[in-house]
Design a protein around this nucleic acid. Structure first.
Length: 803
DNA sequence: GAGTTTGAAACT
DNA sequence: CAGTTTCAAACTC
């Protein structure tokens, strides 16, 4: 296969070389180059490992450049159309323009759209152009050249070659620069194949995918930067030679997007690369097999790279770069910014997930891999997820805890994916991740599950919410990934409704105090915010982080999720006593005096949870559960921490109910409960609860990266609740699914009671009810919520805990 | 949209 | 730790 392709490629190249002028002309007129070069280029880039030809031949370069430029132009052009905003303070745009102009003396701007139309051969409609441009623009914001999602078939055909060409060119560069890099690209390509397979399955969701892709592009960009790690610089340099800074950025983005984007052309190219044998349409089975292989390879590569690249700082820088590149002032752009901030971590997590998946159990491999890819895509979306403030309410400013982010991403996935598959993938990913860091797979897995569940919560709260605006994309992604889209949708909707619109109206706090909802949620302020003198923006990242640290130093729990939520919407909770928030409570409790805990002034009520012992409210009438225990739904809520434990143990029936709830919610509740802040998530899991006499875990130091860790532990009473849940979740996780059995109710009972008893050594640190709590507490301690963060500690802790 | 109420956060 | 002040959301009109 290689030889023939090479030959084919070679001829065109030679031609071009012969007539450089022709090339230049071609560049000017997008139509010709695309048609003539289409096949050749794709094959070339893909098939040829050695790219000297590319470099030698100005044609190729020019073409590439032109492509990049075109897209840029398109994005720019489209920008005004969509956003109507010029380049708002995006220096990058200006740079891009400058770059483009010199190279393409002929105004491609007007040209490009037309060219695209011409290429298509179909009737040229402005609408069609716009449609095309939109995806491009979106992608472009991300810096990705994906034309894949092009709506119209004809358009697709024409554009595909171009797209493929870019990636291919990238691949070439990588090869030349370093074999490692090439490997990474190939792996990416492989990943793309996987994505394609998924796409094939979900052909219906293409439209959504476009959005998703665009959204994900941001994340992807980060990933790319991370993935490339050292090689990244090389790639940048190479790119720079040709197109300049912009180009350099673009290729990275492209690669990332390519992975996620699923274009036929890409698929073919990928297949060619890896499968060279199967030029014909590859079968899904084959693809899957290959995907598995590729995933492993890619994941390994990615993981290694990630480890090397590490931290958020790099991430941030790149994020900024990407943003600058995207350089669109549009609301979307801002969203992207926000997401990035929040998602960042997500992206990293995604990468990790991939690697993890590959590493993770072979059994899951094929599915998990696929899932992983899907998850990645999903993750970005969610962050819109985020609750992810959006995505995640608390996820925190993002930058702080990268590790957390990864978890967050996972969590997000978890939420989206209620299906076993997803869970599995999650586990695997987590496990692998942990293994990398700490090396304790088994423990980590269980923990990971817990963490993931917990994480879900945060996503709901904050960061995820951010993307809520993009919920549509989510829905698509969710459907794609999850076997039970309905639930996911529901959750997403809820999230969107409740937290999606995190916005503040701060006037004096500069959005640097907990008064600011955005800041408190760990999210940057965004467009919808009407704050004044806002410092809670990526630009002031340092300030934000510093302030955050200060606040955390004062109160480690400051950014912890205030409310441990149940997954169910408030309405449901209220309606359903069984579902009640027994599991959900406000950590610190409220202090309401006049609102009777019946208004949103009450944080408990606002969080849709019942008041607990922790509350000092007066005249509590919280519909979700009264402080005195006379909760409408049940006594459960009344006194969350202590009562819950007691009730569970005391009342068999109640216990069952609770267990069921817990188990049911297990995923949901736990996630929500703990979740809000990534830091918290990390912290909690990683640290044993305060039971240790001091209350502050020694690990804090490790966790140390984020003060949050401390917070997680400290929390006093409320924390116990969380641990408990954690414990339950852990139990679930620990027990193999098979062993667990499907019967939820039974499961819950069995699992809960036995484990607790087992674990419960006689500890009454808190002086709570002795037996039960102590056991739970111990369990909680034993459970290292986040091994990954504190590998050493966890390793140490694990043996003792589990034993 | 302005003003009031409310309770958390911040401060002392 | 308690009391006070500040703040911004929630609420009312």
């Amino acid at each position: 296969m290689d030889t023939p392709e090479r030959n084919q490629i070679g001829t065109p190249v030679a031609k071009f070389e012969d007539s450089p002028v022709f090339n230049y002309i071609n560049n000017l007129s997008p139509i010709k180059p695309v048609k003539s070069i289409h096949i050749g280029q794709t094959f070339n880039s893909l098939t040829f490992a050695s790219l000297p030809s590319v470099f030698t031949s100005p044609h190729v370069i020019s073409q590439k450049e032109s492509r990049f430029l075109r897209r840029h132009h398109l994005s720019d052009l489209s920008k005004p159309d969509f956003s109507g905003n010029g380049n708002e303070g995006n220096p990058s745009l200006g740079v891009l323009d400058s770059v483009q102009l010199p190279e393409c003396s002929v105004p491609e701007e007007s040209f490009d759209p037309e060219s695209s139309i011409k290429e298509v051969g179909g009737p040229s409609n402005e609408h069609s152009n716009l449609a095309i441009e939109l995806p491009r623009n979106l992608k472009y914001d991300c810096g990705s050249p994906d034309c894949n999602p092009i709506p119209s078939d004809g358009i697709k055909m024409d554009h595909l070659p171009e797209i493929t060409a870019t990636p291919a060119s990238l691949v070439h560069f990588g090869q030349e620069v370093s074999e490692e890099r090439q490997h990474s690209f190939e792996s990416r390509v492989e990943i793309q194949d996987i994505c394609q397979v998924d796409q094939n399955r979900d052909e219906g969701a293409e439209c959504d995918w476009e959005n998703l892709i665009s959204d994900a592009a941001d994340l992807l960009i980060f990933d790319s930067s991370i993935d490339t790690g050292v090689p990244k610089e090389q790639s940048l340099e190479l790119v720079n030679h040709e197109t300049g800074s912009f180009a350099s950025k673009v290729p990275q983005c492209n690669t990332d997007e390519l992975q996620k984007t699923q274009t036929v052309g890409l698929v073919n190219s990928c297949e060619k690369i890896e499968m060279e044998d199967s030029m014909s349409c590859p079968e899904e089975v084959r693809k899957q097999k290959e995907m598995d292989k590729t995933l492993h390879a890619s994941s390994s590569a990615l993981s290694s790279k990630q480890v090397i690249s590490g931290p958020s700082e790099g991430m941030d820088e790149e994020a900024e770069k990407c943003i600058s590149v995207g350089g669109k002032p549009d609301s979307q752009h801002q969203r992207g910014m926000r997401r990035r901030c929040l998602v960042f971590e997500m992206s990293g997590a995604q990468k990790k997930n991939l690697a993890d998946d590959s590493k993770s159990s072979s059994s899951v491999s094929s599915h998990s891999d696929v899932k992983a890819t899907d998850d990645q895509e999903l993750v970005p979306l969610k962050p819109g997820n985020s609750s992810s403030p959006c995505m995640l309410p608390g996820i925190g400013l993002h930058l702080n805890a990268l590790a957390t982010t990864s978890k967050d991403c996972r969590v997000v996935k978890h939420e989206t994916l209620s299906s076993g598959r997803q869970l599995i993938s999650m586990r695997s990913s987590i496990t692998s991740f942990h293994s990398v860091t700490s090396g304790q797979l088994t423990l980590t897995t269980s923990l990971a599950l817990n963490s993931t569940e917990r994480e879900i919560g945060p996503a709901d709260n904050g960061m995820l919410v951010q993307d809520a605006s993009q919920a549509s994309t989510f829905g698509v992604s969710e459907e794609f990934n999850s076997s039970s889209p309905k639930k996911k949708r529901r959750k997403l909707e809820n999230v969107v409704e409740t937290e999606a619109c995190k916005r503040c109206n701060c006037k004096k706090s500069k959005c640097l105090k907990l008064y600011c909802e955005c800041f408190a949620a760990g999210v940057y302020c965004v467009e919808p915010c009407s704050c004044q003198e806002c410092f809670n923006k990526p630009i002031h990242e340092d300030t934000v982080l510093a302030t955050r640290k200060q606040i955390e130093s004062r109160n480690p729990l400051a950014f912890a999720p205030k409310v441990i939520r149940s997954s169910e919407p408030v309405s449901e909770i209220a309606d359903d006593p069984n579902k009640t928030p027994a599991s959900a409570r406000h950590k610190r409790g409220c202090n309401c005096k006049k609102s009777s805990c019946l208004k949103k002034y009450c944080e408990c009520y606002q969080g849709g949870v019942g008041c607990s012992i922790n509350c000092r409210c007066e005249g509590c009438k919280n519909t979700f559960g009264r402080k005195d225990g006379s909760a409408p739904g049940g006594t459960e809520e009344a006194e969350p921490e202590e009562e819950e434990t007691e009730t569970c143990e005391n009342n068999g029936a109640e216990r069952n109910v609770q267990n069921n709830e817990v188990q049911k919610d297990g995923e949901q509740f736990l996630d929500r409960a703990l979740p809000i802040t990534p830091s918290l998530q990390i912290c909690r899991p990683s640290f044993p609860l305060p039971r240790s006499s001091s209350g502050k875990p020694p690990r804090s130091v490790l966790v140390g990266t984020s003060p949050r860790l401390h917070s997680s532990q400290r929390p006093g009473k409320s924390d116990f609740l969380q641990p408990r849940y954690k414990f339950e979740s852990i139990l679930k996780d620990e027990t193999p699914e098979i062993l667990r059995g499907d019967c939820s109710p039974i499961r819950g009972i069995k699992i809960a009671s036995p484990n607790r008893k087992r674990v419960s050594p006689p500890h009454n640190e808190f002086g709570m009810s002795p037996g039960r709590r102590s056991g739970r507490k111990l369990i909680l301690q034993s459970i290292p919520s986040f091994p990954s963060l504190t590998p050493h500690h966890e390793t140490n802790d694990f043996p003792s805990r589990f034993e």
